[in-house]
Amino acid sequence: LSVILEAYLEKNALTYIHLSSETLELLNQNFQRVEIRKKDYLIHAGDKELYLYFIESGILRYWILDRHLQEITFAFAFAGEFANSYYSFCKDTKSEFDIQALTDCVIWKVNRNIIFDMFKTSLEINILARVVMENIFTKKIQREIELLKYTIEERYRILIIRDKNMLKEIPLKYLASYLGSTPQSLSRIRKKIF
């Protein structure tokens, strides 16, 4: 875990965060490596989130049923990112959404009680958690602005520049839902661009 966590810090320009060997060992001891098969769930809507996950490989899809019982994909998580139903995790409430594996995944997980205990005893883990949350919050704000400011085609062009992996690995129907489009409309946009 420590190697991929350090790669996460470097990828996100967080190299100013130094994790001591003791902290890395604490994380290694408490995170458990699990393999998740494509289409399996990390959490179902209505269940409480008991874990914090770090993705070593694979892609996760966050989705919810709208009032018409249609699946709406609202986020993805990729290798080298943290994932979970955060509100449920922090507030000990039921998750409002599902998290499902789009591909086979290797994930590291830690129980919420253990991570909360680590928060109490390790300043470095507290700093890491704060910076990770700042990073996630910044991405969320950026996505909300894009949803409000740009057309579907403009949002798709932004993804081409920013997230090429998303375009290669994610089925059209989920990508369309994420962009607020239909698969047919997104297919027309792709043909126009390419």
Rank of each mutant, 00 (worst) to 15 (best):
C90R: 04
E96I: 08
E22K: 11
E134T: 05
I152R: 04
G80I: 12
F54K: 08
Y8R: 05
I72G: 00
L186Q: 02
E6I: 01
F194P: 00
A13K: 13
S95Y: 11
L147E: 03
Y41F: 15
V131S: 06
I127S: 05
D104F: 08
T182N: 02
K91V: 00
I158G: 04
T138S: 14
Y16Q: 07
L123M: 07
V131Y: 09
Y174P: 05
N28F: 07
Y150V: 02
R188G: 01
V34I: 15
M118A: 06
Q70Y: 10
R61P: 14
R143Y: 00
E153W: 05
K191L: 05
I145S: 05
L172R: 04
I64R: 14
K149C: 03
W63P: 01
K109T: 00
T121Q: 14
F31P: 08
A45W: 11
N111L: 03
I161T: 03
R143H: 01
K139M: 09
S122K: 09
L147P: 02
A101S: 11
T73P: 07
E134A: 09
G80V: 08
E35F: 15
Y86A: 05
H68E: 15
A75N: 14
E134K: 06
E169K: 04
Y87R: 04
L5E: 04
R33Q: 15
N84F: 03
I115L: 13
Y178T: 06
R130Q: 12
L69H: 15
K164M: 04
W63A: 11
Q100S: 04
Q70V: 11
F119A: 01
E146W: 05
E154Q: 12
I136W: 08
R61Q: 14
L9Q: 07
I161E: 01
F119P: 02
E96Q: 13
L175F: 12
Y174F: 14
M118F: 11
M133H: 13
T151L: 05
L60F: 15
E6H: 00
S85N: 01
L60I: 08
E56Q: 15
T23L: 06
W63L: 13
Y86L: 14
L179R: 02
V132H: 12
R162D: 09
V131F: 10
S122W: 08
